[in-house]
Amino acid sequence: MTAASKVSVAKRATRAIVAAVAQGKPPHRLLLDKNPFRQHPSPASPSNMRQPTLSVSHSRSLLLLLAAGTTLGLTSNLAKIAGENGLPPLAFLAWSVSGAALILLVIAAVRGLLPALNARTLEYFVVAAFFTVAGSNLLFFSAVEHVGASFVALAITFPPLLTYLGALLFGVERFSTLRAAGVVLALAGAAVLAAFGLSSPDASARWILITLCGPVLLAAGNLYRTLRWPENEHPEGLASGMLITAAAMLVITGFMPGFSLAVPHGSALPYLLIGVQTGLFAAQFLLLLLLQKSGGPVLLSLLGSVGAVVGVPVAILFLNEAPPRGLVYAVPLITIGVALVAWGGMKEATA
């Protein structure tokens, strides 16, 4: 400490002692209780440690949300590009998931986070893989060339709303008027999209309904992962096990009639698309489980909204898609609905 600093500290101490005497307080008690010579709180002070920890944790969760939502929004657009270049939906999905599973397996092994293999984790891998990865994404990837990437991106906003309804049925959530109103508004937006889509002369009712089944599977996956998360297992290990199981499911499906795992050999583009999607899937599912573990259900409920904010403009601006019919009516309903569900969840979390 410099001489000037010592003088400054001494002056502050003197003023504090004089003020204490003027108020009738013994000076020695002031020195014992408040220590005027201390310039900063003790690093070990619990009050000094608690607030930065919460701030860092909240910021980390927001970054996880933005990153995971971005990968989700780009996925539907990449699926459309793959379809336009002759890559079958199942082949694109199966080989991308297989590559992502290998990446996450290596990461988990290097970090010593490989999951235990027991009845509980094996059950988790099979059920979570079907709902969260294999079943839902096969529906979306197959539907995207029939209904458009922007419609699929909007459909991905619905799982949190359906998750809330499921949580009410299972008694995981208490009824909230605010959140229930959000669910009604958002589902009204979905109904508007579906009605306008079905009224189009070239609309495929079958593919619109198939697309809307995807969010139901994702919502079931959200509930299952929340209720059956194996104890003492890390998100990285569970993500690798879930993707390995999903890859096996998809490859087996490829041997069934009507499906193909073949990749066109005419150019390198299909392989490039699989490589990019592999990276997106590895990031997406790792971020998803990390967000579920650290951010909780409120932030997780905004994942589809972030995906739509990214996916819909990309589809319209870069893939020359026409905006889905009824978009101008549906988007405000969906946006307000999701906001009410999230706001209600925040109020409950802080109550």
Rank of each mutant, 00 (worst) to 15 (best):
S98P: 00
G307V: 08
A188Q: 00
G345N: 02
S267P: 06
T350K: 10
G166Q: 09
K80N: 09
S47C: 04
A134C: 08
L287T: 11
G279W: 10
V133K: 06
G241P: 06
Q23M: 09
L78M: 14
S55A: 10
V97M: 00
A19P: 00
G345F: 01
L102E: 08
V56N: 08
V126K: 00
S294Y: 12
S142H: 11
L243D: 12
A108I: 07
L299P: 12
C213S: 15
L161P: 00
G296V: 02
A248D: 00
C213E: 10
Q51T: 09
S76G: 03
A67E: 04
V127Q: 01
L272S: 08
G112Y: 12
L93M: 12
A246D: 04
V251G: 06
C213M: 15
A10D: 05
G112W: 11
T70E: 02
L168R: 09
N77M: 07
A108K: 12
V328K: 07
F255L: 09
A149E: 06
R12H: 10
G135A: 12
L62S: 01
L62H: 06
A82E: 12
K34H: 14
T2Q: 14
S8Y: 08
A20C: 13
A180N: 02
I336F: 05
V106R: 05
V338R: 00
E84L: 11
V276Q: 06
K34R: 11
L261I: 10
S260D: 04
A239G: 06
L269V: 13
N35Y: 05
L87T: 11
M1Q: 08
A128L: 05
N232V: 02
E236Y: 05
S260F: 05
F141E: 09
L72D: 00
L74M: 11
G166V: 13
L289H: 15
L290A: 13
V56Q: 12
G197W: 04
S176Q: 08
V9L: 14
P270H: 04
F92C: 08
L87I: 05
A268C: 09
G83T: 00
G189T: 09
T70Q: 02
V133H: 03
A246R: 07
L104A: 10
S294V: 11
V263Q: 01
G73T: 02
V338E: 02
R120T: 15
V263H: 01
G304P: 01
V298L: 00
Q51D: 14
A349W: 07
L165Q: 02
E321M: 03
P52H: 13
G266V: 03
V97E: 02
N137L: 10
A155S: 14
